[in-house]
Amino acid sequence: MLSLTGSGSSLMISDAPTKLLPEHIQESLDIDVPKQKPASMICLFNFEASNIAADTVSSYVFSRSDVQVHTIVDRVVPAWVNETSDVIIMSYSGNSPEIDAIYEAAKLRRARIHCITSGGRLAELCKENKDNLLLVPKGLNNFDATGYEIGTLVNLYEAMGIKGIKDAMKAIIPDIIRYRDETWNSKLAWKLSVKLSDRIPVIYCVGELRAVHKRWKMLINQVIGKLAFSGELPEFDHNEIVSWTEDRNNREFMILMFRIRTDSELLNKIEDTVTGLLPEYKLNIKVIDLEGELMERAIKGIILADAVVGCMMEGE
């Protein structure tokens, strides 16, 4: 069992989003996870806000590793899971209602089980069955915990044979710290907070940035108490574009479109077409370009979400 205690400042419970995401990632990366049996198929169950960390880190694996990783937010364990599979269950509280059903099903399939949590029922089951337990600090809200979950999942993936992911994360730490310092209380953060305060936010991005639109939506829903919606390209299809251009109520919304350059020329063309078309209809839209490496781009989008929601809270 491995455990992170966390620094004193990061253990304070707060409804506000965290400014310490990069430091939390860095702190957790300093913990070495014992080498595991090399993985070939990983089933990653992630609940509550833990799916922000799951989507951020797994985007690297999808692009750079031949290990199959399936991120799942359901309670159904796939039929292909067996004694050669690794099952990771990640829940910050450890008390998600799906925990018992998933754990029991994974045990019946004789899968290798790894748990990332701060405690709760999940930690109890993992200890009882002597499975691989990685503890993150207690006493945080779900948003504060994200950095620790990201770093811990990176460590576990590296220990399971996904080489290079830990070095890749360490390499981007200086850039995400710099981005955080430039973004918190910036003109961009305050300007976006004002634009979002009297409109319904709609956040769009490509699949690699899935963690970004989830973070924005969760923060605005849970912390600010406002409606917010999100979606992904290229599923942002013809019918949805038509509704944006023809619906008379479209001025009630504020579109945030996160754009990156991908390895897919087709996806880049779709992004450029959508971001070029919608402003022609005088919609409330802001296109935000995220630069950097895999994982870095998503983390920057998460940091911007935290910064903007922090401004929205101060402005209330």
Results as ranks from 00 to 15, higher is better:
residue 206 V to Y: 03
residue 189 A to K: 07
residue 215 R to I: 04
residue 78 P to I: 12
residue 154 V to D: 05
residue 193 S to T: 03
residue 103 Y to H: 07
residue 20 L to G: 05
residue 289 D to F: 04
residue 265 E to Y: 07
residue 40 S to Y: 06
residue 105 A to R: 06
residue 272 D to F: 09
residue 124 E to D: 15
residue 14 S to F: 01
residue 197 S to Y: 02
residue 168 A to Q: 08
residue 105 A to E: 13
residue 121 R to N: 05
residue 219 L to H: 07
residue 217 K to A: 01
residue 167 D to N: 13
residue 149 E to C: 05
residue 176 I to Q: 08
residue 261 R to I: 09
residue 34 P to S: 12
residue 238 H to N: 06
residue 63 S to M: 04
residue 218 M to C: 14
residue 270 I to V: 15
residue 244 W to M: 06
residue 129 N to G: 02
residue 215 R to H: 11
residue 19 K to W: 03
residue 29 L to K: 00
residue 123 A to S: 10
residue 283 L to Q: 02
residue 286 K to L: 09
residue 52 I to F: 08
residue 298 A to P: 07
residue 11 L to K: 15
residue 118 S to C: 00
residue 191 K to R: 08
residue 79 A to Q: 08
residue 296 E to C: 04
residue 290 L to H: 06
residue 25 I to K: 05
residue 304 L to N: 03
residue 203 I to G: 05
residue 58 S to M: 10
residue 176 I to Y: 10
residue 194 V to G: 01
residue 178 R to L: 15
residue 306 D to F: 15
residue 96 S to V: 01
residue 179 Y to W: 04
residue 23 E to K: 10
residue 144 D to Q: 14
residue 253 F to S: 02
residue 42 I to E: 07
residue 26 Q to L: 12
residue 214 K to V: 15
residue 146 T to H: 08
residue 33 V to P: 01
residue 230 S to H: 13
residue 136 V to W: 05
residue 100 D to I: 05
residue 19 K to M: 09
residue 167 D to R: 03
residue 13 I to T: 11
residue 222 Q to V: 11
residue 5 T to M: 02
residue 194 V to N: 11
residue 211 A to G: 13
residue 142 N to L: 07
residue 41 M to H: 14
residue 307 A to G: 09
residue 304 L to S: 05
residue 127 K to R: 15
residue 28 S to Y: 04
residue 99 I to K: 06
residue 304 L to V: 13
residue 229 F to K: 07
residue 18 T to S: 15
residue 102 I to K: 09
residue 3 S to Q: 09
residue 226 K to N: 10
residue 6 G to A: 08
residue 312 M to H: 08
residue 48 E to V: 01
residue 149 E to L: 15
residue 218 M to I: 13
residue 300 K to E: 05
residue 222 Q to T: 03
residue 33 V to A: 04
residue 224 I to N: 00
residue 65 S to R: 13
residue 246 E to D: 08
residue 105 A to D: 12
residue 35 K to C: 05
residue 160 M to D: 04
residue 102 I to F: 06
residue 232 E to P: 01
residue 92 Y to L: 00
residue 42 I to C: 06
residue 284 N to E: 14
residue 89 I to E: 10
residue 173 I to W: 06
residue 236 F to P: 03
residue 242 V to W: 12
residue 309 V to M: 13
residue 306 D to K: 06
residue 1 M to T: 14
residue 223 V to W: 03
residue 234 P to N: 01
residue 54 A to K: 11
residue 12 M to R: 15
residue 122 L to H: 01
residue 251 R to H: 10
residue 189 A to V: 14
residue 59 S to N: 03
residue 138 K to S: 00
residue 291 E to V: 06
residue 7 S to C: 04
residue 156 L to F: 06
residue 85 S to I: 13
residue 219 L to G: 05
residue 135 L to T: 03
residue 23 E to M: 10
residue 198 D to H: 14
residue 169 M to R: 03
residue 197 S to M: 14
residue 29 L to P: 00
residue 218 M to D: 11
residue 227 L to H: 11
residue 240 E to M: 14
residue 242 V to D: 11
residue 83 E to K: 13
residue 266 L to C: 02
residue 110 R to Y: 08
residue 288 I to A: 06
residue 206 V to K: 13
residue 306 D to H: 15
residue 171 A to D: 12
